[in-house]
């Protein structure tokens, strides 16, 4: 099958980029990223700079791949990363526009590669349960009801890819932040730092330049791990409680 591509090319951070057209001959069994591999082999054969894109595990779990196809992060299929998208999803002769994540907080590094360091810094601000190596108690000391463990697991399945930010008209990182907050705040181990965690992560998120959540729900639509807006509701609740307690001077 033949695919017409319009690929975002940008030499480095701060440069102005542009869409460049390429034709690629591929087959239906290839994954979308394998199709880009073919394009890159063509470019190298012609002596041109290959298209840089982030990818690693190619099995939908590491969260490294980060492309929009025709404006949709991770492409047209729901609940999938772009590395798991296959060319049989498209038709011979299709034109596909391939762009990096678009967000002020995710500056383009080169071509389709962006810098998602802001996500790391949100986690560094409070996305952890302080537990020094060696200090843990016996694992079965605290029973955790299965529904709570399952809820925590649903939230914890976030792969940190950033599609939620790329899809949001406000470039909000609420789904990402809320998933981590919900995972940790809902577990008994995470209660001790609940308020501190929630405030610190939201403050960091704001400082990184992500926008506010206005309930578009685009994030939920593109999330490859199907994380639901419910986690944002929990973040809002936990934030309100933490902020109130702080205002009233309650011990945190």
């Amino acid at each position: 099958m033949n695919i017409h591509l319009k690929v975002w090319r940008q030499k480095q951070k701060g440069d102005s980029g542009k869409l460049v057209s390429y034709d690629v001959e591929t087959d239906e069994g290839s994954s979308f990223l394998e199709m880009l591999d073919i394009l890159n082999e063509q470019l190298v054969a012609k002596g041109e700079d290959s298209v840089s894109f982030d990818h690693d595990c190619r099995e939908g779990i590491c969260g490294m791949c980060s492309l929009s196809i025709n404006g949709i992060p991770h492409g047209p299929d729901g609940a999938t990363t772009v590395c798991q998208l296959h060319m049989r999803r498209f038709k011979d002769g299709d034109t596909l526009v391939v762009e990096p994540w678009r967000s002020r907080a995710f500056p383009v590094v080169k071509d389709l590669v962006v810098d998602r360091g802001a996500f790391d810094r949100i986690i560094q601000a409070g996305g952890f349960i302080t537990s020094r190596t060696g200090s843990a108690v016996e694992a079965n000391v605290h029973p955790i009801p299965k529904p709570i463990a399952d809820y925590a697991m649903d939230a914890a399945s976030c792969i940190g890819c950033g599609a939620c930010v790329a899809a949001c008209p406000n470039s909000s990182a609420m789904l990402f932040t809320a998933a981590k907050v919900s995972h940790m705040n809902s577990l008994p181990q995470g209660k001790a730092e609940k308020d501190k965690r929630t405030l610190a992560m939201v403050d960091r998120m704001d400082a990184e330049g992500f926008g506010n959540c206005t309930n578009y729900g685009e994030c939920q639509g593109v999330c490859p791990k199907e994380i639901k807006l419910d986690v944002i509701a929990q973040l809002n609740r936990d934030y309100a409680v933490a902020k109130t307690k702080k205002f009233l001077g309650a011990a945190i």
Partner: peptide
């Protein structure tokens, strides 16, 4: 023990274990 303390959401039985 260490992983549970960190909040790793391992699968659990209905009794919470």
């Amino acid at each position: 023990d260490q992983c549970v303390a960190q909040g790793v959401p391992f699968a659990r039985e209905y009794g919470g274990m």
